[in-house]
Design a binder for these strands. Structure first.
Lengths: 300, 300
DNA sequence: TCAAAAGTGTTATCCTTACACCCATGT
DNA sequence: ACATGGGTGTAAGGATAACACTTTTGA
């Protein structure tokens, strides 16, 4: 085995939702995701990451899942003699105890991806973005058509509907087309805040993964405090998805799945009528699959 | 940065479906998955892997997606002074051109996971497996109950239904309980063929991923030849899922999605009435999401 | 003629979506 | 009274699952 030595680095996309805003833990004043070397002392990748998140931030991490491993070389200016392999993880933490207290900074997702938040309608930036992308399609027919199609699907243009899950794909298109080059290209009001190296791409990966996951696994509850109202739960999902949901249907959906139960207590903190408080039914189906089959089974 | 140096290795779960049997490419006579070092010369992880699959096997790989990165240390007996990071990929190849010709061996998935093939009913091995697992649950009430629940869900016992997608979870339970220790533990007729190091676990990861993916992305077509009949398509999906599907409903599903079109040609190779041949509509929706929304949207 | 596979049609049921409306509290 | 949020009921439409049946070939 010849040249197979590399640096190994762990990167975390740690997210929480506070005040109806999804946030990510950052270092360097919001410029980078927290990361650190994978050391010999670590039992495994997961435990390595856990240890050092605890050290650096004091936050207990509930859910932790591997995101993706990167090694492409348009990453940070390193001597080309040795590569860095970055193993990224998505972690979910509960509404944090000490928000303004510490060194690690929490920044809103949509500071980096303003076009991803559709809760108050389609963001204005999308018009500019669409124009830029159309121009980028070029004129050579076959390439043009192909790009056109990708763009329409990704951004919900031309009859296609917006799909929140395509967040990574959208970022990749913007990157390819030169709109979000981290070198400080476009006007940030439209194209969002850049990050160090490829960290914004990793964040996009995390957002896309989480948006997909909440639909078939009960991971939202990792972000909620012990007890919560149905509206709080809905607002949290909305914050993550960047969409508004239909209230009564949301409630129906939730209680069909029997994932939560009433605590008996009542919250009167909201504007109107006091709401029942609920808790997640931990004990019950830890491993439950929420999905329907999608394949036409035949019993036998 | 201190001790962050590691060996980097690429591992491939390359699969094809031939003769209604899903197969995986192996080396060492079926004992191991093909793997190789990640070298400095490689532009990226993907391209590194592609290059060397081409070199070693001559098969062109269509679809390639990252599976998981492992670094836990109960892996192959290496000097503990340096770790190996294994980055695994799932690759799909078309019904291979030279099946018996070459050195690399293709082995059926279900040689390694006999309990995963439910096309001819529930495999007999599951009775033995269930017994063993029940015993393993122990007597201490709270642990017992927890394990019991996991097992019932994973294996479709006690009122739960079998879910093909839980293949990895099932393997992990069997591993934890000592039934499939790669050291040559149980009777292989029931517990399947072991593999080198943790390769069988990686294969299980690939199987689980692919079984999930075929439901929401048109990846099956990467395994089909240029034109195919509807029954061939169905048999391929069945082989992967390890389940039998309902014929007419399967057909309806397929043409609702408008993923294929008639070639105009007819195949008379099957037993009975000749079938229309179809092809995948490449051009059309490369990036299409097949999934329904699963969130109760509210338009505004 | 029969077996094997290709196809068509119809029905009951469930889930999703949308809409309409009432309830409880604070200002 | 009314704004705000909590909460219930129901009906239309579409997707799924199950079943029954016809058609076309080769042996």
């Amino acid at each position: 085995m010849k040249n197979a030595l590399a640096h190994a680095e762990l990167i975390a996309v740690l997210t929480a939702v506070t005040g109806e805003e999804p946030r990510v833990m950052t270092v360097r004043g919001g410029d980078a995701l927290p990361s650190g070397p994978f050391e010999l002392g670590h039992r495994s990748l997961q435990s390595g990451l856990r240890e050092w998140i605890r050290e650096q931030t004091g936050h207990p991490v509930g859910y932790l899942e591997q995101l993706y491993t990167f090694a492409d070389r348009d990453r940070s200016p390193t001597p080309a003699s040795r590569r860095t392999i970055s193993i990224s993880y998505l972690g979910l933490v509960r509404e944090q105890a000490a928000p303004g207290a510490g060194k690690p900074g929490w920044h809103g997702w949509y500071e980096y991806f303003p076009w991803e938040d559709h809760r108050r309608g389609r963001p204005d930036q999308l018009a500019l973005i669409a124009d830029h992308l159309r121009a980028w399609c070029g004129v050579e027919p076959s390439r043009r058509e192909h790009r056109q199609r990708r763009i329409d699907f990704a951004f919900g243009l031309n009859g296609a509907v917006w799909n929140e899950e395509f967040a990574l794909h959208r970022y990749e298109l913007l990157y390819e087309s030169g709109l979000v080059g981290e070198a400080g290209a476009g006007p940030q009001a439209a194209t969002g805040r850049p990050m160090f190296a490829d960290h914004r791409r990793i964040l996009a990966t995390g957002i896309a993964r989480l948006r997909a996951k909440i639909k078939y696994r009960p991971v939202v509850f990792e972000l909620m405090s012990e007890s919560f109202t149905l509206l709080q739960l809905q607002r949290t999902v909305e914050a993550l998805a960047g969409l508004t949901l239909h209230k009564s249907n949301f409630r129906r959906l939730i209680d069909q799945q029997q994932l939560i139960e009433e605590t008996g207590a009542i919250s009167s903190e909201s504007g109107g009528r006091p709401a029942k408080l609920y808790r997640y039914r931990h004990a019950v189906l830890e491993e439950r699959a929420l999905s329907g089959s999608k394949l036409p089974l035949s019993r036998n």
